[in-house]
């Protein structure tokens, strides 16, 4: 019996349509995020009451939002790409070297970022989709390659001093009505960085892509059931290929945003971001088995992940390990809740 059609005791069809898995998991994520944030605002107060605190989460994680959205798309098609963090790092380093030592400008940086992303996407996508190699192994090799290449480009951190670039980096877009007075009573307007605007734009575009375009629906179909998608006439290989290209391209864009935020190339940039991206996607309701997920959920996943990190550190557990342990605990909680919810739903 297809999901979404409920039958009452007499066997008659009910008029009620059950929530799809995607919407159910999305709702859980959004609710959890608001509970977390409201808890922080009412019980911890301090900086949480200021809107800027929330905007800072966005400022610090613009690149992670973009990375996680790409990761969600690959996960929706049933694959995985663990090279995104390393690609981000490689883009940062190459851009920094290009700006500082080769007289590049902001346009060459954009070209480099998207070019590296596209190259990784095409190679990985080809190997995964057309040769049928496990995406985990391929993106693992991609991660190793990107990490190694980063140190070959430069081992030392490269700080950027290019003025045109710094001007873009320091551009602050004020958000009207959300400012607050500081300790001296001077009104400080709330702001977001350029990267946040781009990241939000990406989320909206991807949401539309997944929801209303043929390609977007194909992603879900391929992830949901490979063989049925094939029988429906969907080009499964091409769809998988495009998912990987899109993901790596977004990793390249994420690299540009990360670079725009930190303004330097460093081997340690975006370390562990592939795992943060996977965690955000899962918290946002994307299933690794494919076919279920939503970039809006992923966006809230990133926010929840970073809100809990902030809450933990403001509770006084500011040693670095607490943050990791809470993130893991939260991941565990979400996985178990998802698993129980889906198991019960499928039993009905």
């Amino acid at each position: 019996m297809p999901k979404g059609i409920a039958v009452d005791k007499q066997g008659r069809l009910k008029e009620r349509v059950a929530m799809s898995d995607t919407n159910l998991l999305l709702t859980i994520t959004v609710v959890v995020f608001f509970i977390l944030y409201l808890y922080a605002v009412f019980f911890l107060q301090g900086s949480f009451t200021k809107p800027q605190n929330f905007l800072n989460i966005l400022n610090n994680n613009a690149s992670l939002i973009v990375l996680s959205c790409g990761m969600s798309i690959v996960m929706i098609t049933g694959g995985i790409d663990i090279s995104v963090g390393a690609v981000t790092c490689l883009v940062c380093m190459t851009s920094a070297v290009n700006l500082e030592r080769q007289g590049g400008n902001i346009f060459t940086v954009i070209l480099i970022g998207l070019g590296i992303g596209l190259a990784f996407g095409v190679v990985q996508g080809f190997l995964v989709a057309h040769l049928g190699i496990q995406p985990f192994i391929i993106s693992l090799a991609g991660m190793f390659f990107a990490k190694g290449m980063t140190t070959i480009v430069s081992k030392e951190p490269v700080r950027v001093t290019d003025e045109a670039f710094l001007a873009v980096k320091d551009t602050r877009i004020t958000v009207p009505g959300l400012g607050s007075p500081n300790k001296l009573g001077v009104y400080i307007p709330a702001y977001v960085e350029v990267g946040v605007v781009i990241a939000l734009l990406v989320v909206v575009l991807l949401f539309c892509l997944l929801r209303w375009t043929k390609l977007g629906r194909n992603f879900y179909a391929v992830g949901g059931n490979n063989q049925s998608a094939n029988m429906l006439g969907i080009n499964v290989r091409r769809t998988k290929f495009l998912a990987h290209v899109l993901c790596s391209l977004l990793a390249g864009l994420g690299g540009i945003l990360y670079f725009l935020h930190v303004g330097s190339g460093d081997v340690a940039n975006a370390a562990g971001d592939e795992m943060n991206a996977i965690a955000s996607s899962i918290i946002g309701g994307t299933l690794l088995t494919g076919g279920v997920g939503n970039v809006v959920g992923t966006f809230f996943g990133v926010l929840s992940l970073n809100t809990i990190k902030r809450i933990v550190s403001s509770l006084g557990f500011d040693e670095a390990w607490w943050s990791n342990i809470t993130v893991a605990a939260m991941l565990c909680l979400f996985l178990v809740v998802q698993s129980i919810v889906l198991l019960r739903k499928n039993k009905k």
């Binding site: 690794l288 670095a320 342990i325 991941l331 996985l335 698993s339 198991l343």
Partner: peptide, 17 residues
């Protein structure tokens, strides 16, 4: 019924901490 890579991601994140 959680995919192994995701289930072990928890310990991967928390283990060293």
């Amino acid at each position: 019924n959680i995919q192994p890579m995701v289930a072990t991601l928890i310990m991967y994140t928390a283990g060293r901490s």
